[in-house]
Design a protein around this nucleic acid. Structure first.
Lengths: 200, 200
DNA sequence: GAAGTTTGTTAGTGTTTACTCACTTTCTTT
DNA sequence: AAAGAAAGTGAGTAAACACTAACAAACTTC
């Protein structure tokens, strides 16, 4: 009495999407295989045909996020524009991404993905560190171009900027996504960048 | 065969402390009443003598945190010093607090405390908003004293500063508390405040 | 078009977990 | 010292959950 039958790749995507949706709605640690199955119209047991263990769903979801994030950064970095403009693009892009995957802040803190000996967690941290290095590079470019205050440690500045983005996303998550994250994010980024720029 | 017997108030404190410890160790949504009981040397059933439902433990824990946070802010605000110094004290104080209650970031995002119709969540948001208003006030003072750039919306600046603090705490939590939060926090705060100050 | 593979179902199983109940032991009050 | 309240124990229950096993129907391949 199978209602619908789809190729495995497609079903895996559906399962990952459902998991991320549910992470947003009920929290990453509250998701059951039953809920995932229900959302895409399958029985609970069918999930295990595609992911032998529940933790594998998280590993796959993280991989999915990782890929999209890296691609987005690469695009922004290879683009044209002055360093200060690039910085803004990169940071605002982060807000756009989080707005599209609202579960992200909660997922990052979830212990669910410390499964498999924290390998998944390590992968995330690696991606984030890549972003930090990229940001620091742009800050350095900006200093050489005379656009950004010279007496500033680029790495520290990158940490501060990332913290601002993530902190704003955290507040957004805590307030039940009650405000427009991208608009608020732009305002915050503008204040932060203003502080970093050389003043004439 | 009761090993030890303590007055209810004391036991409640112990339970709250154990819950916060465990939230740090295994994550807020992974805590079991069994684990709490084990940590303080009681049987699981004894927990329910002090908190009829598990969610009540969270409500109490949040109350505990709320009280300490408010007290800390009040002290910093009533102190002496120029506005920029007060800002620094307030922000660094936050890092000290989080370092002392490392579970905090994860607890804030946990769905566990959306129990009781989100009343607990509302309380948290209220406290945080109080902090934001206080910060904005100090920023305004700083502007009037000519210490802080005038063309700046104090409320926005307060949001940005809080985001920086919370974002740094988030990173600290994600990295398994692997660096000295207070030291890192001071560095980040210094960069942020530098950006806000009037330059001579 | 038969054989094999892939994707799904139904019906479980063992474990974990919040919570209850009847009873005991310690502390307090008079 | 007796009575009553407060704090704890031991044993259990129902529900929820990840995961399994045996079978069925749909695609693929030759």
């Amino acid at each position: 009495m199978s209602r619908e039958r789809k190729p495995a790749g497609e079903r895996r995507e559906e399962i990952i999407a459902a998991a991320l949706d549910l992470a947003h709605e009920v929290g990453p640690d509250r998701i059951t295989t039953e809920a995932i199955a229900g959302r895409i119209g399958l029985t609970q047991a069918a999930i295990f045909r595609h992911f032998p263990r529940k933790a594998d769903i998280w590993a796959a979801a993280i991989g999915w996020l990782r890929e999209r994030l890296s691609r987005r950064w690469a695009e922004a970095l290879s683009g044209e524009g002055r360093p200060s403009e690039k910085l803004r693009t990169l940071l605002v892009g982060q807000f756009r991404f989080v707005a599209g995957v609202p579960a992200l802040p909660a997922v990052l803190l979830s212990r669910e993905l410390q499964a498999e000996g924290g390998i998944v967690q390590q992968a995330i941290l690696g991606v984030m560190d890549g972003f930090r290095v990229a940001l620091a590079g742009v800050v350095r470019d900006g200093q050489e171009a005379g656009e950004i205050r010279p007496g500033l440690d680029p790495d520290r500045a990158a940490f501060a900027l990332i913290a601002m983005v993530q902190g704003t996303a955290l507040r957004w998550a805590m307030q039940g996504r009650a405000f427009d994250l991208v608009a608020e994010g732009e305002a915050v980024v503008d204040i932060a960048l203003d502080g970093l720029l050389s003043r004439s």
